[in-house]
Amino acid sequence: MSGEIKNRLKNLRSRERRKKFLKELACIAFGTAMGIATYVVCLYTHFAIFGWNFGLILAPLFAGYVESFAAKRLVHESTGAVSTFILFIITVIYGFIIANPTLGFNVITAGSIVIILQAAFPTAVNYFLIAMGLGIVSHVSGIFKKITMFLTDTYEKIFKKESKTKDHYIERHAHTRHDFYDMELEMNGLGVLLLSLEYPPEGLGIKEQKGIYEARYIFFSDQKEEIKLGLEEVLKEYLLMDVRLAKDKALLKLIKQLKADGCNGLLNLDIIYDTVGPKKGENINQIIIKGTGIVFEENDEL
């Protein structure tokens, strides 16, 4: 018996709620309709000064006023002047886009849209702008990363824990080199005599010139990442290691090419460095090593 009463009361409450919700919707719709009517009247009568129509202000205001008035009578509480926002959007869409088909998208219109949105939804937009602003500052300067690093380092110093981020980074770099220099590499002991000389040495006994040989290696120097990690002090050292690694890789590639073609020497060896990517801090560099492959008579004296 009591369960039936409860169900009836529940139904009654939900019915009341639905009724109230419909009344609220009606108030918003009425306010919106009155706002639109005001805007139409303003546009029709050219109620404007210096081309700026008063309807842009009067329509949202009147819509909100009518909606609030009706809500007070029907539901005895405010509905939040939702029709004001609706009218705001309607007037902006009509005034800026439909009535101005020639209006292009540029800095001024983009700025206007931001200001309009800021006026309509101040809290949300302000939060967004702050978050975006802070995000840009953080990305460019890496300040939050530095602060976090400082706090982490301080915490680690106090509680005697070892830093992980820097270690991981250093480990990664070390691995890159270790993979290449796994064995003892002696470039001059690989069976190809590398000479930076323009003219062949006397007594070398060149049997054949095999033509020009060239090898390149592209390497990146992402200094921004190192700066963000607070590794400025080792940045120079790392970059130099990258340069040496690139040079050795290119040299090895060249030696392989020469040996494959039966050369045992390279004359007029030239090393060229170039920056391919123009973006500051994240450069793409290339090293080119070239020269003329030769076959000469093996001579113990030389």
């Binding site: 930076s196 970059l239 340069v243 920056t275």
Partner: peptide
Amino acid sequence: GLKISYNNLGGTMGNTILVNVY
């Protein structure tokens, strides 16, 4: 056959210079 070259590798301020001798 000594050669010395000065190469700009860019860098954060655009002035990371590599001195290369061989």
